[in-house]
Amino acid sequence: MKQIKGQKSKIENALGKKIGEVIESRSAEFIGQCYKLDEAPPLGCLIKTQDKSGVTYGVVFDVETHSLEPGRRVVARGENLESEEEVFAANPQLSRLLATDFKVLVVGYTEGKDCHHYLPPRSASIHSFVYICQLEEVRIFTGSTDFLSLIINARIDVPVDEVVAACLRYASEAHVDRDAFLVGAGKELARMLSGDANRLNSLLKRIK
């Protein structure tokens, strides 16, 4: 419980903050890289990136911290040290050799004042900055649950249902009537998964 609270306050602090930039972009997804190691947005978090054509919204579905050099694996270094921080203190090069990437599913965009819950005509610009959405923005964007079909039908390596559940749990915090939002989203899922009652069941258990 404590851990969740701590995590939540961390997110709240990060709201609206610039956290990284797009380093790889496709129509349906993009990869962002964090400016700081291990400070990726949480799974299911709604993020946005802005360029000249408008704002593109996305949901974080995968986070990976890896070595920048493909041939050089990370090795364990803390055997004789007291804390994890000391590992980095003793090896200041580490923060330059490692990077945290997050993968994002594109779930909508704005064009002028209109907000659409489908894929934008253009993919996110490379090197455009990535921000975590403000609560107000989350509330407005998730006012319609049409974007769920983009996630449900995505072909990704991470279990899709986990991403959906995480996204809805995250978004529900932005709504005044949390339960009403979840019930509405649940009903939308029930319609989409009408032929698969078991999947719906397990998904619903994850979002309440």
């Binding site: 019930v183 009903k187 029930a190 009652a197 719906l200 258990k205």
Partner: peptide
């Protein structure tokens, strides 16, 4: 579905 959970019962009613 596990209708003992009011949330699930609520979601299922009228959809599934």
């Amino acid at each position: 579905p596990d209708v003992s959970d009011p949330f699930i019962a609520h979601v299922i009613t009228g959809t599934a």
